[in-house]
């Protein structure tokens, strides 16, 4: 394989991973916009989605599409429970307290997953076939198309939801100004709950489509969640287009770095990018909100 087709190959795998990072970053953004909470348990939604669909599919009686929906629904309920039982009763709105609460929730969920499913990584059959598609000297597995397809559907659905439904508009109002939203009769608490539900649902969907490519274990959530957060910061925390851009950019950068520099340091690349962005331009590429610095 010559260098150009090698690079093409890296870019393809980068875009596939980047799509996942983008969806996770969107999950962060949805919750951050409605509550100003960074949900460190976001990656666990992705892990739970993957584990749930493996468990459901393992029965063999259900069609894959049905398992998909059921898994998303189950994780959505987890998201609602997370908001209802940890974020809402929290006495303090101090970021340190909220960070520690969601970190605690994330460890808790990971531990539960380990109790239920054990420590081994589990796999899932590809949605449709696994014979690779060749083009331009590189290969593409069909599951990558599923990942991209689901990502696009998720983004389009979110866009429709925010722009054309009354609940979506109410959520945007909350993101803009919670108090004013409350004054015009929007149930802010309900909107916060919806944002956790949405975020959990899209996280689960991302987790499900990626399982056939990467396998899933109880401990994958932490890295995926943190990378998604890197993507959200890279794009600009709170900006949806920024999250998507950040996700794809991070995925491609990481794949190129892993391929051309060192695969051992693959995970370090994302965090190096994160530190650079935080130190040089904490508002991210597309972020508009002023970041408080001293």
């Amino acid at each position: 394989m010559d260098l150009s087709s090698q690079i093409l190959q890296y870019v393809i795998s980068g875009i596939t991973n980047g799509a996942i990072y983008a969806v996770i970053a969107l999950g962060f953004t949805i919750i951050y916009n409605s509550t100003e909470v960074i949900n460190f348990a976001q990656g666990e939604f992705v892990m739970l989605g993957g584990m749930a669909v493996i468990a459901l599919d393992g029965n063999g009686h259900l069609p894959l599409g049905f398992s998909f929906l059921l898994a998303v629904l189950a994780v959505t309920l987890v998201g609602i429970a997370l908001e209802r039982f940890t974020i809402r009763p929290a006495k303090s709105s101090n970021p340190i307290a909220l960070i520690i609460i969601t970190v605690g929730a994330s460890i808790f969920l990971r531990g539960l997953a380990m109790m239920f499913w054990g420590k081994d990584s589990l796999g899932l059959r590809a949605f449709t076939g696994s014979s690779p598609i060749h083009f331009g000297g590189a290969t593409l597995i069909p599951q990558s198309l599923w990942v991209l397809g689901v990502t696009v559907v998720v983004m389009a659905a979110l866009q429709f939801f925010y722009k054309h439904t009354i609940t979506g508009k109410a959520m945007r109002a909350c993101a803009f100004n919670r108090r004013a939203a409350g004054l015009v009769g929007i149930g802010v608490n309900r909107m916060v709950m919806v944002s956790f539900a949405l975020s959990a649902a899209i996280g689960a969907a991302a987790g499900i489509v990626i399982v056939p490519i990467t396998l899933c274990g109880y401990d994958v959530g932490i890295m995926l969640g943190l990378k998604g957060f890197c993507a959200a910061v890279l794009g600009g925390l709170g900006s949806s287009p920024g999250s998507i851009l950040g996700g794809f950019l991070l995925g491609v950068l990481e794949a190129l770095g892993a391929g051309l520099i060192s695969s051992g340091f693959k995970d370090a690349i994302a965090f190096f990018v994160l530190l650079l962005v935080l130190f040089l331009r904490p508002s991210g590429l597309l972020g508009s909100k002023e970041v408080k610095r001293f």
């Binding site: 609460i101 605690g104 929730a105 460890i107």
Partner: peptide, 13 residues
């Protein structure tokens, strides 16, 4: 780790 997570959440909430 389940217990660690639980302690973190409950104490901080």
């Amino acid at each position: 780790i389940v217990i660690f997570g639980l302690i973190l959440m409950v104490v901080m909430i």
